[in-house]
């Protein structure tokens, strides 16, 4: 037990090494939250464009609008293919060493990379959610004289969002854990914080297990919080 106490002191207390963990956690959370915001925004837009294209082709739309929608749908297709077809780590390295080579902030590089990456997955989750809403809902809205956009925002999207929520939470959890690769561009997030301590004290066990436990705790907290949100959204399902 004495050995444990000594190691704990060395790993976390001595020279304020706990700061590597706390500051790392801060970076991890910042990257996750902002990437999530970007990801959900991109995801909703791309998901809607893809669905609008699939549902509206051959219907109603004519001329210019149809061309624009086709072009947007093509761009979305390329985006989804490229992002989902390459590893996030490679995307991060390309962003850091090629695209944003003059960027001063590594956090910004990470936020953009993970936002763009996550957007592709959220888009597909959202598309699935929209597809899962019975098409009678759209028809009923349209038959009352509501426009496509009005019916989408007031009727279809709220239901699609509810249907997608479990998969969105899953994506959030994946995103949180995936930010651990930021160490590759020298960003001192949580994982790298633990690794720096390991490199200094030559003790692998406590820093790495500690880091793992922190990830686990955040994931549990996210699951717990969203179980309340889901319960709230389920109020229209009571029988």
């Amino acid at each position: 037990m004495n050995g444990f106490g000594e190691k704990f002191y060395q790993d976390f207390i001595q020279d304020d090494r706990w700061k590597f963990i706390v500051n790392g956690l801060k970076i991890t959370l910042i990257v996750t939250v902002f990437a999530l915001l970007i990801g959900v925004t991109i995801g909703i837009l791309v998901g809607i464009i893809r669905c609008a294209h699939d549902q509206q082709s051959g219907k109603e739309l004519t001329g210019f609008k149809k061309v624009v929608l086709n072009i947007l749908n093509g761009l979305c297709h390329v985006y989804l293919t490229v992002i989902r077809g390459t590893p996030a780590l490679v995307q991060l390295l390309i962003m850091y060493f090629i695209i944003m080579v003059s960027a001063k902030s590594k956090v910004l590089v990470a936020v953009l990379t993970f936002g763009i990456n996550s957007g592709a997955y959220v888009a597909e989750v959202f598309r699935g959610g929209i597809m899962s809403v019975d098409k009678g809902q759209m028809e009923a809205g349209r038959s009352l004289g509501l426009s496509y956009v009005q019916t989408m925002t007031k009727i279809v999207l709220p239901q699609a969002f509810k249907a997608s929520l479990p998969a969105l939470v899953n994506e959030l959890i994946t995103l949180l854990k995936e930010t651990s690769i930021c160490g590759y561009i020298g960003l001192n997030e949580l994982t790298r914080g633990g690794d720096i301590i390991r490199g200094t004290t030559f003790d692998a066990f406590l820093p790495l297990i500690g880091v793992a436990l922190i990830y686990l705790a955040i994931v549990l907290l996210i699951s717990y919080l969203f179980s309340f949100v889901e319960r709230g959204l389920r109020k229209s399902d009571q029988h």
């Binding site: 809902q137 349209r142 004289g145 509501l146 007031k154 009727i155 239901q159 229209s236």
Partner: peptide, 28 residues
Amino acid sequence: NRVRSHMGMVFQHFNLFNNLTIMDNITL
């Protein structure tokens, strides 16, 4: 949209808006 607002339609499968209360279904 304007034309449809003058024509009511009732469907085989009702198609009430599942995410809204009855009152909101009617007033939306």
